[in-house]
Design a protein around this nucleic acid. Structure first.
Lengths: 211, 211
DNA sequence: GTATGTGAAGCACTTCACAGCT
DNA sequence: AGCTGTGAAGTGCTTCACATAC
């Protein structure tokens, strides 16, 4: 397993998956070598930033030539711990939760949704996208037993903190939060929020003309 | 209309909607006044940061007391141009596009989805969530005529840049992009991407233990 | 010649700490 | 006494520019 560098800025880690995605696409197009300049053009990032970002993890390029795309993809997948699959739990099997379970974009990237939970007794025991829906009371048992580390939260905002607290107690270390609220977690638990309303609201400032 | 301050950092603008959301919730709970300390606890932000952020736009607090929540909400809504509704177009009426049209979270925040577009001739003319689906060829006519400034892109990644180019040519100034790729736009067009896979991939780095 | 890797410089955001208002 | 508003200090990320390697 890759050693975690103590002093890698979070923004750097956040850019690596973007590099990885673009590089993967370029491989599919038959490209074999790329310079930081070329990659930067694709992603609207300066070449210096790409080189600096990668330098936190090692020396992956060849001076005078650039980077072997296949090699760099391998290294990035390893750094990001994407060289094996991850099992994922989904909590909240309403409209949104079902869409998440059926979303075809997670599987190819190695994220396998394998557990589903909901608070509604009418849903418990039913199936959603091939998964049996468990009651919230079983979160801890199931997640500890399956050693699940990643959860997706798709419950109403009013119940979300309560659910997240349970997930944290069950050993979850990464949460993808779809509930529109500010989640509170211990420092060793990662949270990323999917929040389209906040995204829209941070753009209107720059538009400022009704339409 | 609020003057746009030239030198407001983007990160500050991105935090204002979070403040606004929390303040709105607190009003509903009957709270009337709040200190930067209290608001910071809700949002995991330092009090100094909140005061500094707000100071870019004016002096909204009362020394010794704090901020009138109702007043601050009004001011934030005005600063963010959220004191009127916005019409929104959706491009790509597949599974995801339909979910977006039917998502109940946009309307209450003043975002009205009023136009739908898709490239598939089989869909054109049909209805989705009460909206008639138009062909891509009509993007420019419809958006210019209705003066739409905000669009949501929910097409496959392979077609997304092409669609975004058309939107930009049609006068769109803010794009909420659900396609998993790095969109390219002119500097005066805002883009925010909703990308759950990137979010997951930037968390696995910190977990680093399979599950 | 060409592109990387990297200390150093530059820039931008955050936090401090206190004057000033209530 | 309490809390805001804000210059100044501090911190961290980005960009520069060049030695180094191919």
């Amino acid at each position: 397993m890759t050693e975690i560098q103590q002093d890698v800025p979070e923004v750097v880690v956040a850019r690596l998956p973007q590099y990885l995605r673009t590089l993967t696409q370029l491989i599919d197009q038959g490209m074999q070598v790329i310079s930081s300049q070329q990659l930067g053009e694709q992603l609207q990032v300066t070449p210096a930033q790409i080189r600096k970002d990668l330098s936190y993890f090692g020396r992956f390029g060849k001076q005078g030539r650039g980077y072997s795309i296949a090699h760099l993809v391998d290294r990035l997948r390893h750094i990001l711990a994407l060289d094996h699959d991850w099992t994922v739990a989904v909590v909240g099997i309403g409209r949104l939760g079902r869409a998440i379970i059926n979303y075809p974009g997670f599987g190819p990237e190695g994220f396998r949704v394998t557990c589903a939970f909901d608070a509604d007794p009418a849903l418990v025991g039913q199936k959603a996208g091939g998964l049996t829906i468990h009651p919230l009371s079983q979160i801890r048992d199931v997640l500890e037993q399956k050693q699940v580390k990643i959860a997706i939260v798709a419950v109403p905002a009013a119940n979300a903190q309560e659910v997240i607290d349970q997930l944290v107690m069950s050993g979850i270390k990464a949460i993808l939060n779809y509930a529109p609220f500010a989640a509170q977690t211990p420092a060793d638990v990662q949270v990323r929020s999917i929040d389209p309303v906040l995204a829209l609201q941070s753009m209107t400032y720059y538009v400022q003309a009704p339409g």
